[in-house]
Amino acid sequence: MDLENQRRVLEFSEQYGAENVVVLLGAAEGEAAGLAAETVTLGDPTWAGPLAGVSLGLSVFHICEPEVKAEIDPDVYDEQISMMEMVLDVDDICNEMNAIRDQL
């Protein structure tokens, strides 16, 4: 995850409390989604950014996961996300996200 984004996630979790922050990802690949999810939960696996060694344990989802989709107005989802849903390997992304969450 981009170092600047790591810094912003860290600041938000300090400002609002980790239990009040949900991270919503839009990564196009399962692996990239998993890495970002790992960064905001267990810590930066690359040990390069502000979240290196910092386990925030934040709630994290990908926009294409069914739990998130169920929360969004179907018309808005169709307009904003449906095309990408057709393009992405949603199963792979969900598997990666679940694998990270299972470690918490």
Partner: peptide, 15 residues
């Protein structure tokens, strides 16, 4: 982990 960028673009155009 950034995938096949051209292919993703063509998939989006096709979609």
């Amino acid at each position: 982990g950034a995938g096949d960028v051209p292919e993703a673009n063509f998939k989006m155009i096709g979609a």
